[in-house]
Amino acid sequence: MNANNIIKSLTEKFPNEILEPNVESNIRISSYVDKDAIVNVCKHLLETLEFDHLSCECGVDYPDRNEIEVVYHIASYSHPVVLTLKAKLDRDEPQIESIVSIYWNANWYERETYELYGVKYTNHPDLKPLLLPEDMLGEWPLRKDYEGFPNKTAKNLV
């Protein structure tokens, strides 16, 4: 499985949904994906390109662009190529379809992204906070404009 082949296969199958494909090295590829096509792209990756291991899923906040990116790192147990898929979401109302139906272990990653960034995953089986207590929901602490961070320090420290 070659990095260029993967990109080729992806862009041929999804000419409009895969944007800015980029081969960083022979084992790292990155690309933007249209947020509505994420499930189909993942299905294609799993079924034809041997990407059977969702390594990681996370959110990144860009307040100046008013965007939240959801980043998927999809790897494989058989070849060393890691594909970084990014989907841009509207920061005011971030919403994307869940990929739990394709990669089972996306479950907790999505719950985590939900409570830390406020990204709503549609079709998620059980979307509720994972790490934080229930009453911290809505603070979205990993967003860049989260206010509670440097202020909530120990009183006897500088």
């Binding site: 790490l131 602490p141 440097p150 909530k152 320090t153 120990a154």
Partner: peptide
């Protein structure tokens, strides 16, 4: 004792 390296975390309790 004081929060250690995580004294400024959003999730920990101080004092």
């Amino acid at each position: 004792i004081s929060g250690g390296p995580f004294y400024e975390s959003y999730s920990t309790v101080q004092n």
